[in-house]
Amino acid sequence: MHGPATTGWLLVALCATAGAYCVLRMRSGVEEQRRAAGGEAVMGFGMAAMAVPAAALDPPDWVWPVYAAVFAAAALHSLWAARTGAHHLHHVVGALAMVHMSLTMTAAPGGHAGHGAAGIPLPTGVLLLYFAGYVLLSGARLLPSGAVAGGGTTRWGDRPELARACRLGMGIAMLAMLLTM
């Protein structure tokens, strides 16, 4: 990722934490929750790896095509899983955004992507709009609805408000990564 190193490290911390929480969610007793958490964990850790500031670690040129292949496989897996749930379509878009960023870094000399004189490329602009809308919608879902949750203890992996906060954080991180391309 290019931009201020502090921003990059904050994104690494946010995405790695989100990925770690998604690993905890994979222990849920609900099968659909486990499946969604697995895809989100891959995205969280992959985004953390891609967000490492270029000043700290300048990866070799072969890394970007590997990222593209891994996230293309994740997109195909999410597309297959989308047959059973609409949330997996968001995973497809997220994985394709990662493929787009990886291919952009592959095509750029020395791995340094830039928009040039033409402005923001169309795919990047569409992804920015999608994730801006996703972040706004995810943030709105975190607002209290007025309903009080029932008593009893809920396992960390089964807390829907934490899953929503995790998704919001990853959406914000994706927006930041797309903006710094």
Rank of each mutant, 00 (worst) to 15 (best):
P4M: 07
A5L: 12
A5N: 09
A5P: 06
A5I: 12
T6I: 11
G8W: 01
L11R: 12
V12A: 09
A13L: 15
A13F: 10
A13K: 04
A13Q: 03
A13H: 05
T17F: 03
G19I: 04
A20D: 02
Y21Q: 08
C22P: 00
V23E: 04
L24K: 03
R25C: 15
G29C: 00
V30P: 00
V30D: 15
V30R: 11
E31Y: 10
Q33W: 14
Q33I: 10
R34M: 06
R35A: 08
R35T: 06
A36W: 02
G38C: 02
G39D: 01
G39S: 03
E40G: 03
E40C: 05
E40M: 14
A41K: 05
F45T: 00
F45Q: 07
A48F: 13
A48R: 09
A49G: 10
M50H: 01
M50S: 03
A51R: 04
A51Q: 05
A51P: 05
V52C: 08
P53K: 10
A55D: 15
A56Q: 09
P59D: 10
P59E: 09
D61M: 14
D61S: 15
W62M: 10
V63E: 00
W64K: 06
A68R: 05
A68Y: 05
A69H: 04
V70W: 02
A72W: 13
A72F: 15
A73Y: 04
S78E: 00
W80K: 09
A81G: 00
T84K: 11
H88Q: 10
H90Y: 08
H90Q: 05
V92W: 04
V93C: 08
G94H: 04
G94T: 13
L96V: 03
M98V: 12
H100L: 11
M101H: 02
L103R: 12
T104R: 14
T104N: 06
M105C: 11
T106M: 11
T106V: 05
A107Q: 13
G111L: 04
A113W: 12
G114M: 11
H115M: 12
H115V: 13
A118E: 15
I120Q: 13
P121R: 12
P121N: 11
P121C: 12
L122F: 15
L122C: 04
P123R: 07
P123Q: 05
P123V: 11
T124Y: 02
V126P: 01
L127K: 06
L127A: 10
L128V: 11
L129Y: 13
F131P: 11
L136Y: 06
L137M: 11
A140T: 09
L142K: 05
L142Q: 09
L142D: 06
P144T: 05
P144D: 03
P144W: 05
P144V: 03
S145D: 14
V148R: 15
G150N: 08
G150H: 12
G150P: 02
G151T: 12
G152L: 11
R155A: 15
R155I: 00
W156R: 07
W156N: 09
G157W: 08
G157K: 10
G157P: 08
R159P: 01
P160G: 03
P160Y: 06
A163M: 09
L175S: 03
L175F: 02
A176Y: 08
M177G: 02
M177R: 01
L178W: 06
T180P: 00
T180D: 03
M181Y: 02
